[in-house]
C-alpha cells in the first residue's frame, strides 16, 4: 500500500557535497526536468474530505521549511491548507506568509499553552477547529498539513487529528537519532531525514542513519531530503500524492462530480 523505502543513494553523501551556500539547483543530484507546459502529475481524484497530514519532529529539524516546500510543490495542483502549532504561535505562519508560498487565508496558527504535544495528541480540539475554520474560510480542501510545534522525539499526532504523519529529523541532530527511536521515528508513516547537504559538515553518516531507520521502522518508508537541492521536496510530495489517492478511495465524494 505504501511506497518502498527510498535509500539515500539519490542524496549527496560524498565529500564533494556542496556547502549550504551553493546555488539551490544542485547538478550533482540526479533529477529530471519535466517538459515545460506539461503537468508531470496526473490529476488526483478528489476525496470527500481533506487528507490531513501531520508534520512533526524536534525543534529546528526543518518542519516549516518542509511545509513551505510542499506548498510550492502543490501550489497549482491541490487545494491546500496549513495549520501550525508553533510554541511561538504566529511565527511559523508568518514564515510561510513571508515566503509567499501560500495565501495567508489558507494558514491558521494554534496556540498550545507551552504544550505542543498536548495540542496534537491528547487534546486536539483547537487543531480540529482550525481545520474546520480553514474549510469555512476558503472552501473545501484536498490536503491540510498540520505542523506541530517543535518538541522532542516522543511527540506524535493523534489519529483523531491526522490521517498520516511525517516525522522530520535532521542530520545536524546527530546520526544517532534514528537509533534512539521514540514513537515519532519508529511509527510515523514517513520518516524524513532532513538537511542531508549538511551531513559532511556535522560528521553524520547517512548510511548509519538509513540502517538504523530500517531497523527501527521495518517496512515503513524513510526519505532523505535536502531542501537546498530539492526546493519542492519532490519525493515527499510524491509520497503525499500516493496517500491522497489512497485517501480518495477510502473517502469518496458524497456527490460524484462528473461531466454534465
Amino acid at each position: 500500500m505504501r511506497p518502498e523505502t527510498v535509500v539515500p543513494s539519490a542524496t549527496p553523501v560524498d565529500p564533494t557535497t556542496p556547502p549550504p551556500t551553493a546555488p539551490p539547483h544542485d547538478e550533482t543530484v540526479p533529477h529530471t526536468h519535466p517538459e515545460p507546459g506539461v503537468d508531470p502529475h496526473p490529476p488526483l481524484a478528489r476525496a470527500g474530505r481533506a487528507l490531513r497530514v501531520g508534520i512533526g519532529g524536534p525543534v529546528g529539524s526543518g518542519k516549516t521549511a518542509l511545509v513551505a516546500a510542499l506548498c510550492r510543490a502543490f501550489a497549482d495542483e491541490l487545494r491546500l491548507g496549513v495549520v501550525t502549532n508553533d510554541i511561538y504561535t504566529t511565527e511559523d505562519a508568518d514564515f510561510l506568509r513571508r515566503a509567499g508560498v501560500l495565501d495567508p487565508a489558507r494558514i491558521r496558527a494554534v496556540e498550545t499553552g507551552c504544550c505542543p504535544h498536548t495540542a496534537i495528541r491528547d487534546d486536539i480540539g483547537a487543531n480540529l477547529d482550525a481545520v474546520d475554520e480553514l474549510a469555512e474560510a476558503v472552501g473545501p480542501l484536498d490536503l491540510v498539513l498540520v505542523e506541530s510545534g517543535g518538541d522532542n522525539l516522543t511527540a506524535t499526532f493523534s489519529r483523531g487529528l491526522v490521517d498520516r504523519q511525517i516525522f522530520v529529523v535532521d542530520v545536524a541532530g546527530g546520526d544517532k537519532v534514528p537509533r534512539k527511536g521514540g514513537p515519532g521515528v519508529t511509527a510515523a508513516d514517513l520518516l524524513v531525514i532532513n538537511k542531508t547537504d549538511l551531513a559532511s559538515m556535522v560528521g553524520a553518516d547517512l548510511a548509519v542513519m538509513d540502517r538504523d531507520a530500517r531497523a527501527r521502522r521495518g517496512d515503513l518508508p524513510t526519505l532523505f531530503l535536502s531542501i537546498v537541492g530539492d526546493p519542492t521536496a519532490s519525493r515527499v510530495a510524491d509520497w503525499i500524492r500516493h496517500e491522497l489517492a489512497h485517501h480518495a478511495a477510502l473517502h469518496p465524494l458524497a456527490v460524484p462530480v462528473g461531466p454534465a
Binding site: V110, T112, G113, C115, T118, A119, D122, D123, G125, A126
Partner: peptide, 11 residues
C-alpha cells in the same frame, strides 16, 4: 484537566 476541551492552551 486532561478532559480534551482545550484547557491546556488557556492561562
Amino acid at each position: 484537566g486532561r478532559f480534551p476541551a482545550g484547557a491546556h492552551a488557556h492561562s
